[in-house]
Design a protein around this nucleic acid. Structure first.
Lengths: 201, 201, 201, 201
DNA sequence: AATGAATGAGCTTTCATTCAT
DNA sequence: TATGAATGAAAGCTCATTCAT
C-alpha cells in the first residue's frame, strides 16, 4: 500500500533540494560533499539515494528547475507589462533583478556550476539558458527598430546587461543599506540609460 | 650553488603557475587535482612541492599576483589619460575590459574562486579587491560632483558597472565575430551612457 | 486466514527461488544483489523478506533442495537398473550427466558457491554431498571386488569421475552440436572405460 | 633519480599479487575486498593504487599470467617427452595434474572467476584458454589417427579429460593421504584408459 | 630538484536488512 | 503481503601531502 501524499518521503526530497541549494551555493558543487548534505537533512548518506540518482543528477535537477521557473515567471512579468518596447524592457530588467535577488542560491549555481555538469546535462541546460538570453536580445532588437533604443550589437548588449543585472546578487545581503526595491530601480535605470536613444546628436 | 635565472627550476615553477591557471579556470579549484597539474607540467605530483607550498598557497599566489598586476596597470592607464572625470572613467572602463579580455583565466579565478581561499588568505585578497572597487567608486563620485555624471549610489553603481564590464570575459573567445577593440568600445559606451548626465529635461 | 495453495504468496516465493537460481548462477552469490533479484521478480527489495529469511538462507535452501533432489533421483535411477556392478555404475553415470545437463544452474551453485555458506550451513550441506560421493565410491568398490573394475583408489577415483561427468555442464548450451543423449553416452563410456578391467596383463 | 631495482616498490607489487591470489582463491573475487588485501600486504588501501590499476585489472593480470605460464610450461613438458601420440598425451596429462596441484590458487581463479572479468578482458583470456584446450584436442586427434586411441569427439573428450584432471585441485590438500606423484599417476592412468584403443573385440 | 611509494582522510555509491504503514 | 524510506556498514577509489632516496 503506497504512502499517502505529503508523506515523509516527499518532505525528505524537498529538504534534500533545499540543503543542496544551500551547500552548493556555499561551497561549490565539487567542494560540497554528500555527507554534509545528508547531515543537514538529518539522514544517513546512503539514504540520499532513495531520493536522488547521483550527485550529478541533483545538480542538474536544481539548475533545470531554476531555469524553468525563471523562464515562466519572466513570461508572466512581460505579459503583465504594457506592450511597448521600453516598458517591456523595463519589466524584463526589473523582474530579472528582483527574481535574482530572491533566488540568489539558485542563480549562483545556475551561473557558476554549469561546468560541473556532464556533457549531456550541459547541453540540455544551455538550451534553456539561450532561450532566456534570446528573449532579451529580441526585446533589444525591437526597441532598436522602434527607434527608442540604440543597440550597437543586440546579443552582446544582452550579455552585458544580464551580467550587470545579475551581478547584484553576488554581494547583496538582506538587511543591508539598500532595499530590494531600491536596488531594482537603480539597476533598471542604469541598464535602460545605457541603451536609450539620445535626443539628437 | 644557486642556478641561474633561466634554470630548470625557475622554468618548472613558471610552468606550474601556467598550468594552474589553465586547470583552475577550466575545472574550478576544488575539481582541479594536482595529479593532472603535474602531468600537464610533465613532472610527478610529489615534485610539485619543490615549487609550491600547498594547493591552497598556489591559488592564493595566482590571485594575488593577478590583483597586484591589475591594480598597477590600472594606475598606469589612468595616468596616461586626461585628468578630467569623464576621460578618467572612460580610461578605467576601457582598460578594465581590455585587461579582462586578455587575462580571462586569471579573472575567472580571481572572481569565482575566492570562496576556496582559507580565511587568512581571503582577508588578504579582499583588501586588494576593495582597493580596486574603491578606485572606480572614487571616479564615479568625482564625475558626479563635477556635474558630468548622475550616479545614484556610487558603490552600488561601481559594482554594477564592474559586473557588466567583467561579464564579457565569461563568453568571449578569440577569433569570434567581434574584435577585442570593438568589444571594448561597445562596453565602454554602454557603461558611460548608463551614468552620463542627461542634457536637462 | 491462510491463502490457498496457488496464492500470490506461494507464487512469489517460487518466483524468488527461480530468480535466485538464475542470478546466482549468472553472477555468483556475492556479486548477485537482492535489488536485481527483486526487480526480476517484480517486487520491491523489502518485500523479499516476506519470503526469505536472509540472502544466506536463500542460498542454503537452494543448495539443499538441489542435493535432496539429486540424491532422491539417483536412488530411483539405481533402483531401476540391473543390480550388477557395471550396470549400476553405468546407470549412476548416465543419470549424473543427464541430471546435471538439465539442472545446470542448480549444479553450478551447489558446486561453486559452497564457500559462500556460513559455517553451520556449510556443515549441513557437506553431509549431503558426501553421501552422494559415498554412493559412487561404494559402487566402485563393489565393481572392483566383483572383478569387473580396476579401481586404484575408490574415493579418489570417485572424485575424478564426478569432476569429469560434471564438467560438461560448464560448457553445454542447448541447441549445440551434440544432443544431451549423445553427451550422456560419450561421457558414460569415457568414465567406464577408464576403470573397466583390462582383459589380462 | 629512480629507485634501484629490487626496491620496496617491486616487493610490494609482488606481495599484492600473492595476497590477491590467496584472497581471491579463498573468498572469490566479488567477496574479496581491497581493504583486506591491503591489510594482508601491510599497507593502506589507497596505496594499492600505486601498483594496480583497478581491482578488475588485478584479476585480469593474475589470470593472464597464470595462463601464459601454463601454456609455456606445457610446451616445455611436451618437448621433453617422446614424440609418439601416447607419450605426448601422457606427458600432457601428467604435467597438467602436477601443475594444477602446485598452483591451486591460480587454477581456481582462472577457472571460476572468468565471469568476473569485464567483456574486454574476458575476450582476451578466452583466447588463451582456447589455445590450451586446442592443444589437447590436437593430441587426441593425432592419437586417434595413429590408431592408438578411440576418441569419439575430440573437443568434447578434451573438455571431459580437462575437467577430470583439474578436479583434483578442488579437494587436494598437502600432507593428505596420497602424494602428488601418486595422484598424478592415478589420474593419468584414468584419463588414458578412458581413451586407449581396446585390443579388438 | 625529481622520483616512487606511502599515508590517512575522504569521497560517492552500494547493499542487506528493518520497519511503520 | 507489499511498499517506501530508512539504516549502518562497507565498498572501490581519489587525493593532497610527505619523505627517503
Amino acid at each position: 500500500m503506497p504512502r499517502t501524499a505529503g508523506s515523509r518521503g516527499a518532505r525528505t526530497a524537498a529538504a534534500i533540494r533545499r540543503a543542496g541549494l544551500k551547500l552548493i551555493a556555499r561551497h561549490g558543487f565539487a567542494a560540497m560533499n554528500l555527507r554534509e548534505l545528508a547531515a543537514e537533512v538529518g539522514i544517513q548518506p546512503g539514504s540520499l539515494y532513495n531520493h536522488i540518482e547521483t550527485k550529478q543528477a541533483l545538480l542538474f535537477d536544481l539548475i533545470r528547475e531554476h531555469l524553468d521557473s525563471l523562464l515562466a515567471s519572466t513570461e508572466a512579468a512581460l505579459s503583465a507589462a504594457p506592450p511597448d518596447p521600453l516598458a517591456q524592457l523595463r519589466a524584463f530588467a526589473a523582474h530579472h533583478v528582483l527574481y535574482h535577488l530572491e533566488k540568489r542560491q539558485e542563480v549562483y549555481i545556475a551561473n557558476f556550476e554549469l561546468r560541473a555538469l556532464d556533457a549531456a546535462n550541459y547541453g540540455r541546460i544551455i538550451i534553456l539558458r539561450q532561450a532566456y538570453e534570446a528573449r532579451l536580445t529580441a526585446l533589444l532588437e525591437a526597441g532598436d527598430q522602434a527607434g527608442e533604443l540604440t543597440v550597437a550589437d543586440p546579443p552582446v548588449t544582452a550579455f552585458a546587461l544580464l551580467a550587470m543585472l545579475t551581478g547584484v546578487c553576488t554581494w547583496y545581503r538582506p538587511g543591508g543599506r539598500l532595499s530590494k526595491a531600491t536596488l531594482v530601480a537603480l539597476h533598471t535605470d542604469l541598464a535602460l540609460n545605457g541603451i536609450r536613444r539620445r535626443a539628437s546628436g
